[in-house]
Design a protein around this nucleic acid. Structure first.
Lengths: 205, 205
DNA sequence: GCAATATCGTGAAATTTGTAACGATTATGC
DNA sequence: GCATAATCGTTACAAATTTCACGATATTGC
């Protein structure tokens, strides 16, 4: 199989989300142009992205929504369930725990950790929050796919080291810090300040 | 001035964040290579990004941290304070309101709105939460730069319409929905599900 | 003061990403 | 059944982005 670029992956995931929504509306088929209008992508881009995964479309008709969703998900997400470990049960951590999309879908938060004893030992939205000290032991057993860092920045590198030590290869980092990790570990940074400022700058160009 | 690309803007903002951190450490100068090692970017990329804004560096020395930060901020963020309006004071909204980076820095949340009467009329982290009905009136007066959507997806389009009606040109949208807005309005989408899945997919390629 | 060296700034080459054009294919209407 | 129209998949092209290579310049050590 070809190398799928990170940009293609984001676009395809956006299409999958849109396909799910169309299914809920009871639609059966959709054209690349229709998907383009909803998502804001272009029709050519959508067809090209999809062509990475085979020939699923029917000329003059478009794509069968259910089939397309299946094909895209099978190629991109090779697991049925992606297991997430969360560090930090403060405001952001809670927001992630309660986020509507999770649970129902592909992502499953298998455990959360917090240094604050008052926050740990609770259960939030069906997920148990453990004290920080138990983290390494528990996550080694749990074989998680993604580690999420939602702790204050002072603690972020320490948590990253712990995630790396547990053998997890994928990190989502909300702390405004450039983490040091081995190069085989992939970090996706979401710094809200940068996101907000980017949004403002992009608009004013 | 040249057109600064969205990618350049993100990288420059990352550099600004790093420069602030270096200033706190008491450092005076930094080379492009040094910044590269911290941020994960390449040295050439950093020099090229900076070259958009003039010649600030000193050969054999590097950049004066304070000067570089000033230059980058002046060119990218032309306002001293960027005013943010927040919709939704649920978990995510609260996380944004209490996020450490805000307030101290360039971003100022000037008002928040929530449909739930129990949440509105409170003050969170110095920001008053108003009932939803007052939104259009208040935000037209307030001349905000960015509108943030942190409401459930059912309400997201309605909120987007309201932000557009208030004349705000820049939206950050956390709802997993493709918003319909006029083309002069810029939307930055942060769908946590897509971000998490992307992180997983990127790592497994 | 001069050679050696680190670092910047930048034009050119290489790579990646996106766009346009168009033949191939399938449903529709007559 | 055949012309028409809509849509896919793909190849060739264009634009954007990144990387490379190297001249210019400032500091350091002798």
């Amino acid at each position: 199989m070809k190398n799928i670029s990170s940009k293609t992956i984001s676009r395809v995931l956006l299409c999958v989300r849109t396909l799910e929504s169309l299914m809920r509306e009871g639609k059966i088929t959709i054209s690349s142009g229709g998907l383009a209008r909803i998502t804001g992508l272009t029709d050519v881009q959508i067809r090209k992205d999809i062509s990475n995964f085979g020939k699923v479309g029917i000329p003059r008709v478009g794509y069968n929504i259910r089939d397309l969703k299946t094909v895209l998900e099978e190629f991109i997400l090779r697991k049925n369930v992606i297991r997430v470990i969360l560090f930090g049960a403060g405001n952001l951590g809670k927001a992630i725990l309660k986020y509507a999309g999770f649970g129902k879908q592909k992502l499953k938060i298998v455990a959360a950790f917090d240094r604050d004893k008052k926050k740990s030992e609770k259960v939030i939205n069906g997920v148990k929050v453990y004290p920080f000290e138990k983290a390494l032991f528990l996550i080694k057993k749990s074989t998680a796919d993604i580690g999420v860092i939602a702790v204050p920045q002072e603690a972020s590198q320490e948590v990253a080291d712990l995630i790396v030590a547990a053998g997890i290869k994928s990190i989502v980092n909300f702390a405004p810090v450039s983490l040091k990790v081995p190069k085989e570990v992939h970090v996706r940074n979401i710094d809200l300040t940068i996101e907000f400022l980017s949004a403002y700058c992009d608009a004013s160009v």
